[in-house]
Design a protein around this nucleic acid. Structure first.
Length: 394
RNA sequence: GACCGGUUCGUCUAGGGGUCUAGGACACCGCCCUUUCACGGCGGCAACACGGGUUCAAAUCCCGUACCGGUUACCA
């Protein structure tokens, strides 16, 4: 069986550094096993999805060199199928209509609200206390026909547990009692994330789901859906998270541009160098080598060498020299001074062009001088930007 | 709160019962090279969260505590 993995970003922002690493690990795993690397855009949240962020994500993937092996799938295109699946589960009695009016949630401090509410409930919360869970089929049908809005929830069994063998974290279990009857279909008819993901992963014949550890609890919910559908589940591999200094979550709101891939490209990073750096955040080949070409990464990558603890991406917003991780900067400098000159020249040319410092003579009668100059000065530079900044003097 | 993860130098990590007075890399400091800077070479500083067990032997296995993170949505 050939392996098939997918990178599934939601187009609600640019390509986050953590997502970029998830894409990288998916890519490396696919290539290492001779499988396929696919991309699926999770655009079921139509309110928040935008064209710009989609373009920016695709741009980031391209820059890093991860070309999908098949056409990109848009999750919203499959909404009807997802809906049918929910209806089928309803028909089979594995899901039920919930007529509880939709709660209006203010977008603001939603996370906080949910946590507060959960705290108040303590451990007394009964996940099976929905009054519509055991509504008779006749009554349910009647209310639906009368036009009363409803969401469709999965009917999770009273007792039992989900379990799976995570390729990174090992054996995982969760009691049904700790999982709520999750909503499959919203009252406006739109499928929800967990349903859509499972349907699409089945549809796309995904064999390995490699994603951030923040999805660990979703995985148990998704397994419930696989079971309700009578489908075999893929292998799951959860990745440790990348955190901000101090072990806090890395977020755009708080940390700004630092978390965006485009920042690195624009700051004069070399894609190979940044990819190399990313590969070493949460994975190691167990040897002392640290500089790896893409081919070497593909060859040496394996899921069981991914480590289980979150990594801190170190930077200091108040320090110009330390604006991003020291090691990332070092690695970029290392690439600049050791890579083939033939590969470096085009990058320098592009940088100079962007800064209006390029002269056609550099490719013509001053070619030799230009190349030897680049070769000479590159060993003191950290980024491509230095060629247009400090390199000006030459 | 509940459930689930995690914890080795400042940071990324190696190590998964004896080879650990814990290895490498980045950063930092010193020396050498160099007219200067950088590169390079050599050296230094610096870590097994804590407490109990198990064992002849624990960074490594078990239990507890602490701390950190994730999740707890008709978001993804």
């Amino acid at each position: 069986m050939t392996t098939r993995v997918r990178f599934a970003p939601s187009p609600t922002g640019y390509l986050h550094i953590g997502s970029a690493r998830t894409a990288l690990f998916n890519y490396l795993f696919a290539k290492n096993t001779g499988g396929k690397f696919l991309v699926r855009v999770e655009d079921t949240d139509l309110q928040r999805s935008t064209e710009e962020s989609l373009a920016s994500i695709l741009d980031g993937l391209k820059w890093l060199g991860f070309a999908p092996d098949e056409e990109i799938v848009f999750q919203s295109d499959n909404a009807e199928k997802h809906r049918q699946t929910a209806l089928k589960l309803l028909e089979e009695g594995k899901a039920y209509r919930d007529f509880t009016p939709k709660e209006d949630r203010s977008d603001k401090n939603i996370k906080q609200d949910i946590a507060d509410k959960a705290r108040k409930q303590g451990d007394k919360k009964d996940m099976r206390d929905n009054p519509f869970r055991d509504l008779s089929k006749e009554e349910s049908d009647k209310r639906a026909e009368a036009g009363e809005p409803f969401a469709i929830r999965l009917k999770v069994a009273e007792t039992g547990k989900t379990s799976f063998e995570d390729a990174v974290y090992g054996e995982q279990e969760r009691d049904y009692a700790d999982i709520e009857d999750l909503v499959l279909l919203r009252s406006d008819g739109h499928p929800l994330y967990n349903l859509a993901v499972v349907c699409d992963d089945i549809e796309m014949d995904i064999t390995h789901v490699i994603r951030g550890q923040d999805h660990l609890t979703n995985t148990h919910k998704q397994i419930l859906i696989y079971e309700a559908l009578g489908k075999e589940k893929p292998t799951f591999a959860h990745l440790p998270l990348i955190l901000a200094p101090g072990g806090k979550k890395l977020s755009k709101r708080i940390h700004g541009e630092i978390v965006s891939m485009t920042t690195y490209r624009d700051a004069g990073f070399i894609a190979d160098a940044f990819r190399n750096f990313l590969a070493l955040l949460g994975w190691s080949a167990g040897e002392e080598q640290e500089i790896y070409s893409l081919d070497e990464l593909v060859e040496k990558f394996s899921l069981d060498r991914i480590n289980q603890s979150n990594a801190t991406f170190n930077f200091d917003a108040n320090n110009e020299r330390r604006w991003t991780d020291d090691k990332a900067i070092w690695m970029n400098a290392e690439y600049i001074r050791t890579m083939n000159l033939d590969e470096l020249i085009p990058l320098v040319r592009e940088e100079l062009r962007n800064e209006k410092l390029w002269r056609e003579e550099y490719d013509d009668n001053e070619k030799d001088w230009f190349e030897s100059t680049v070769d000479l000065i590159r060993e003191r530079f950290y980024t491509l930007k230095d060629f247009s900044g400090q390199g000006r003097a030459f």
